[in-house]
């Protein structure tokens, strides 16, 4: 009885802590949005974060975009040629990229590269009392640290997704047309005829949602690194960084399904 009682108490405590955590996370987002209108000005810091999240992710986005398009070209050509429909290769590659793979893979790549770094940076600021110092200087840490990253994320994710899509389509062209011999005119015509504004719109909606999710989770995990454990050590930062990447990645995939099911 005593053991089962303890178990219920522990379970209740765990459940409560999770609900409180979700509430805190919601408030964190509200503070970050509210911080957009608070001083100090965010132009310079936003530009710095655009450079960090956007420009410095360009190589990895181009690289993964090219190979994703190439593999789609290869697989698509192999599958479509079985039905004599190689002419649909352009449509298959572009629709897969624009609607699904572009936003998802871009978000996963940026999460791995920039999300983890953002979380670690803010986590270190937390354990070194820099966030407390900001507060004691009457500078809202949400406004100063989090809001510019949100703006930068919202600007960079759709742009990176667009770059990923374009490079992916050229990657598919390189393999499908130049290497395997599909008709180049049919490839571009397929894209022209099949890709509509709805597809592009869906891709951008996804990119924006993934941007908010990635920045929200990464900054939140860093901001509260070590706060609950009270230890404020290096281990808390590493745990927060791992959590940020895992939770962001899972959320991206779940959100992808939800958005697709709503918009289809």
């Amino acid at each position: 009885m005593n053991t089962s009682g303890n178990f219920v108490v522990k379970l209740g405590g765990w459940g409560l802590s999770k609900i409180l955590g979700l509430g805190r996370m919601g408030m964190f987002l509200i503070y970050a949005i509210n911080g957009l209108w608070k001083p100090p000005g965010k132009l310079i810091s936003t530009i710095k974060h655009i450079y960090f999240i956007g420009h410095r992710s360009l190589f990895v986005i181009c690289f993964t975009g090219a190979f994703s398009g190439m593999v789609l070209g290869l697989q698509g050509y192999y599958t479509l040629s079985k039905f004599g429909s190689e002419g649909l290769l352009g449509a298959a590659v572009s629709l897969s990229l624009i609607r699904e793979l572009g936003p998802v893979l871009t978000a996963l790549m940026v999460t791995g590269r920039a999300g983890s770094a953002i979380c670690a940076e803010i986590g270190i600021m937390r354990i070194e009392e820099q966030i407390d110092a900001l507060k004691c200087m009457a500078i809202d840490p949400h406004s100063y640290l989090i809001s510019p990253r949100f703006i930068a994320g919202i600007i960079c994710f759709p742009l990176l997704t667009s770059i990923f899509d374009v490079i992916g389509i050229y990657g598919g062209y390189a393999i499908g047309v130049l290497l395997l011999g599909a008709n180049p005119g049919a490839y571009w015509d397929g894209i022209y005829k099949s890709v509509g504004w709805d597809d592009v719109y869906m891709g951008y909606i996804k990119a924006l949602v993934f941007a908010v999710l990635t920045i929200w989770i990464s900054t939140y995990k860093g901001f509260y690194a070590g706060v609950d454990s009270g230890s404020m050590g290096a281990e808390d930062v590493s745990k927060a960084t791992t959590d940020a990447v895992v939770i962001s990645s899972v959320s991206i995939l779940v959100a992808d399904y939800v958005i697709t099911s709503i918009l289809l």
Binding site: I124, E128, E129, D132, A133, A138
Partner: peptide, 15 residues
């Protein structure tokens, strides 16, 4: 907070 100054144990400088 605007009327106080705080020196933390570690200095808490922004890196």
């Amino acid at each position: 907070w605007q009327s106080i100054g705080v020196l933390f144990q570690s200095g808490a400088l922004f890196n």
